[in-house]
C-alpha cells in the first residue's frame, strides 16, 4: 500500500441470507483508492456495486476480507474511535434525492445531523455558520435552512444531500449513482459541483454508476464489476481505448451515445459468460499493462497482452 492510498478494499465478500441459502453479492473484490482521485465502480443492477459502497459504510456486514481507511481497519469489529473516524471522514451521497432526505425534518436539521451526532460545534452560532457555509458551497441560499425538503426540486435536494456530507469535512465521498435519478438538465449542475469540490478540497470519490459514458467524463480510474466480481480495472482513457474483458466491451457498446453518426454505425456486442473456458485454468486478477488489471485465466491473459 503506497502512501497516497486513502482506502483499501481487500478480498471483500458480502453475503445475504436468502431463505436457507446464502446469496453471494460481492466476491473477493480488491481495490485501492488514491487520495484525490475519482474512482468509478461500474456495473449493472445486481452486480454488487451498491453493496460495496454500503459495506464500506458498515450498513451491510461483510463475510470476507477487510477494509482499511488511512491504514486503519474499519470493517468487522472495531472500536469507537475507528467508528468515529469512519463516520466523520467518509460520507455518502445517495441515488434518489426524493428518498434520501427526511421529509419531516427541516433542512437545518438534515444538514446538521452529523454535527449533532459528534458534537462538532462549540455553540449554536458555530453550528449555524457551518450549515450556512455548506449550503452556500453547493449553490443554495442559506435562507433555505428553515424549509422542508418537499419544497425543493430534485436537483436542489441532491445538493442538500451533498451539503449534509460536506459539513462533516470528509476526505472520501461515496457517491451511489448520484445523477441517474436526476433530469438531464440537472445532472450537469451536480457533476460540476462534484468536480469543483474535488479540485478545491482534494476530495476523493468512489463513484458508483451504471453508465460508462457518463463515468468517463469524471473518472480517473474505472473498475467494471460483473456479478459481484471485478472483471477489469484501468485508467479511464485506457479502458475506453483498450477494453479487454468481453463484458467491458459489451458494456461499452451497449451505452447509446448522443451522436446519431456514431450510433448509426455501431454494432452491439453481447456478452456471453460461457465463452470463457475456465476448465483449463482458474481466472485470476492480473496486471496486463501498467495499472490495467483484468480477470482471466493464463491463456486469456496471454492473448490480451499480445
Amino acid at each position: 500500500m503506497s502512501d497516497d492510498t486513502i482506502l483499501s478494499v481487500r478480498g471483500l465478500g458480502v453475503e445475504f441470507p436468502m431463505g436457507r441459502k446464502r446469496f453471494t453479492a460481492v466476491d473477493g473484490v480488491s481495490f485501492d483508492l488514491r487520495r484525490g482521485e475519482t474512482f468509478s465502480l461500474v456495473g449493472e443492477s445486481g452486480s454488487g456495486k451498491t453493496t460495496i459502497g454500503r459495506a464500506i459504510m458498515r450498513i451491510h456486514p461483510i463475510s470476507k476480507g477487510e477494509i482499511l481507511f488511512e491504514g486503519k481497519r474499519v470493517s468487522g469489529r472495531i472500536d469507537a474511535s475507528a467508528e468515529r473516524l469512519l463516520r466523520q471522514r467518509i460520507q455518502m451521497i445517495f441515488q434518489d434525492p426524493m428518498a434520501s432526505l427526511n421529509e419531516r425534518a427541516k433542512i437545518d436539521y438534515i444538514v446538521s445531523e452529523g454535527l449533532y451526532n459528534f458534537r462538532l460545534f462549540k455553540d449554536e452560532a458555530e453550528r449555524r455558520a457551518k450549515v450556512e457555509k455548506a449550503l452556500r458551497d453547493v449553490g443554495l441560499i442559506p435562507e433555505f435552512a428553515s424549509r422542508f425538503p418537499h419544497e425543493f426540486s430534485g436537483g436542489q435536494r441532491q445538493r442538500i444531500g451533498i451539503a449534509r456530507a460536506l459539513v462533516m469535512e470528509p476526505e472520501l465521498l461515496i457517491a451511489d449513482e448520484p445523477i441517474s435519478a436526476l433530469d438531464v438538465s440537472i445532472r450537469s449542475q451536480v457533476i460540476n459541483l462534484m468536480n469543483r469540490l474535488k479540485r478545491d478540497r482534494g476530495l476523493t470519490y468512489l463513484f458508483i454508476a451504471h453508465d460508462l459514458s457518463v463515468v468517463r467524463f469524471i473518472s480517473d480510474r474505472i473498475a467494471v464489476i460483473y456479478r459481484g466480481r471485478l472483471v477489469e480495472l484501468a485508467g479511464a482513457e485506457e479502458l475506453f481505448a483498450h477494453p479487454l474483458h468481453p463484458y467491458t466491451r459489451a458494456l461499452l457498446s451497449a451505452v447509446p451515445l448522443p451522436d446519431p453518426e456514431v450510433e448509426r454505425l455501431k454494432k452491439h456486442v453481447a456478452y456471453d459468460p460461457s465463452i470463457h473456458d475456465y476448465s483449463q485454468g482458474k481466472p485470476s486478477w492480473s496486471e496486463v499493462s501498467s495499472g490495467h488489471f483484468v480477470l482471466g485465466n493464463e491463456c486469456e491473459i496471454r492473448g490480451w497482452k499480445a
Binding site: 459504510m57 434520501s100 445531523e113
Partner: peptide
C-alpha cells in the same frame, strides 16, 4: 434511503 443516510452519519 434517508434512514440509511442517518446510519451513515452515525445517528
Amino acid at each position: 434511503e434517508y434512514n440509511i443516510a442517518s446510519r451513515c452519519l452515525g445517528t
